[in-house]
C-alpha cells in the first residue's frame, strides 16, 4: 500500500465497436485486459497496484448498456452501464423494486453513484457490496455476452468467493434481469457502517417479505447478508421458520438467532467477528420486525 501510484498507472484505453469485438479483445488479451463500466472499483485497484492490466475496455456506449426497461410480464431489465443514481431515480424501479433503490442509495456518495453501477457492484463480487442483497432477494439474473454466445446466469449461483464469480474470460454482463416481484412484497435494507451514511457495510441486512397463501404463516421471507461471509449470504433457514410460524416478537427473535448462527464473519479493520454476529442478529430482528409490520399494514389496507 505504501507504493500506491500517485495517479493511474499506464494503460491503453480500448473502446470496441461491438460486444463481439469487446469479448474477442478480452480473450485475445487474457490477464492483460479488464472491462470497466463506472470504474469506481477498477481505478481504485489500478492505482493501488493490485490490478495491473495493460488495457481497460470501455463498453458503456454499446447498445442497451444504458437502458432501463420494465415489462409488466417479464419484469425489469437494467443495462449493465446504468449508474446507481439512474436506478434510484427510476419511477419503475421505485414502483416495483423499491428495495433496489433503497440499497443503491446507501452506496458511497451522490457523485460516486453517478459512476458506480449495480453490474459493477455485482461483478466486483465484494461481500460488502450493498446492492447484491437486493438483487439476490429479487431473484435477479445476469445476461452475459461471451465468446461462445449469450447466456443467462442466476445471481444465486454467481458468486464463488471474494472477487470471484462464474464469469469466464471474455464474458460481458450486458443486462441485469429482475422477474416481477411477488405480489405485495415489502423490503428493507439495513446497513451498519461507521459513519451515519457513506461508509462500507460492517454488516448489511436485506429482507424481502411477501404474502403466500401456500405456507402456514401466510408469508415468506428472503434474507441476504453483506460482509459476514466470503460471498453475499442468503439464509434460507430463517425464512423457513417464518413460513411455519406467524411473525411475532418470539419467532422473529428465533429467526434472527438462526441468521446469526448461519453467518461466519471475520475480524477486520471495520469490525470484529463477534460484533458482526451480534449485529446480524439485532439488525435482522429490526429488519424483520419492520417488514412484518409493513406487510401487516398493507394486508389491512387491502
Amino acid at each position: 500500500m505504501i507504493n500506491v501510484h500517485a495517479g493511474l498507472p499506464e494503460f491503453e484505453y480500448v473502446k470496441p465497436g461491438t460486444m463481439a469485438e469487446a469479448s474477442r479483445f478480452l480473450v485475445d488479451h487474457v490477464g492483460e485486459a479488464r472491462l470497466f463500466t463506472g470504474g469506481t472499483d477498477t481505478f481504485v485497484r489500478m492505482r493501488d497496484g493490485f490490478w495491473k492490466e495493460k488495457y481497460l475496455v470501455d463498453v458503456k456506449h454499446l447498445q442497451g448498456m444504458r437502458t432501463i426497461r420494465f415489462d409488466p410480464e417479464k419484469g425489469l431489465t437494467l443495462g449493465a452501464a446504468v449508474n446507481m443514481n439512474e436506478v434510484i431515480a427510476s419511477a419503475e424501479v421505485n414502483a416495483h423494486y423499491p428495495l433496489l433503490a433503497e440499497a443503491a442509495q446507501t452506496v458511497a456518495s451522490y457523485q460516486l453513484r453517478n459512476r458506480a453501477t449495480i453490474a459493477g457492484n455485482i461483478c466486483n463480487a465484494s461481500p460488502a457490496g450493498d446492492t447484491l442483497g437486493a438483487c439476490l432477494v429479487y431473484n435477479a439474473s445476469l445476461y452475459v455476452h461471451g465468446v461462445d454466445g449469450l447466456r443467462d446466469e442466476l445471481l444465486r449461483t454467481f458468486f464463488c468467493g471474494p472477487g470471484k464469480t462464474v464469469l469466464h474470460v471474455g464474458d460481458i454482463v450486458t443486462e441485469l434481469n429482475f422477474p416481477i416481484p411477488p405480489q405485495g412484497a415489502r423490503g428493507k435494507y439495513i446497513k451498519l457502517g461507521r459513519n451515519v451514511i457513506s461508509d462500507l457495510a460492517i454488516v448489511g441486512i436485506t429482507v424481502l417479505g411477501f404474502p403466500d397463501a401456500d405456507v402456514p404463516s401466510g408469508f415468506r421471507y428472503r434474507i441476504a447478508l453483506a460482509s459476514v461471509a466470503p460471498t453475499p449470504l442468503v439464509v434460507e433457514a430463517a425464512g423457513g421458520l417464518l413460513e411455519e410460524k406467524a411473525a411475532s416478537a418470539e419467532t422473529i427473535e428465533a429467526a434472527a438467532q438462526l441468521v446469526m448462527e448461519a453467518c461466519s464473519p471475520i475480524d477486520d479493520v471495520r469490525g470484529s467477528a463477534r460484533y458482526r454476529k451480534l449485529m446480524v442478529r439485532n439488525l435482522t430482528r429490526r429488519a424483520l420486525t419492520q417488514v412484518a409490520s409493513d406487510l401487516a399494514a398493507s394486508g389491512e389496507a387491502h
Binding site: 484505453y13 470504474g39 481505478f43 443514481n85 451522490y110 457523485q111 460516486l112 453517478n114 459512476r115
Partner: peptide, 17 residues
C-alpha cells in the same frame, strides 16, 4: 467534484478520454 453532462462526478474517477 465537477459537473459532467449535468451531473456531479468525482473527476479523479473519470478518464479524460
Amino acid at each position: 467534484t465537477v459537473i459532467l453532462n449535468g451531473e456531479p462526478v468525482n473527476s479523479c474517477m473519470v478518464l479524460a478520454v
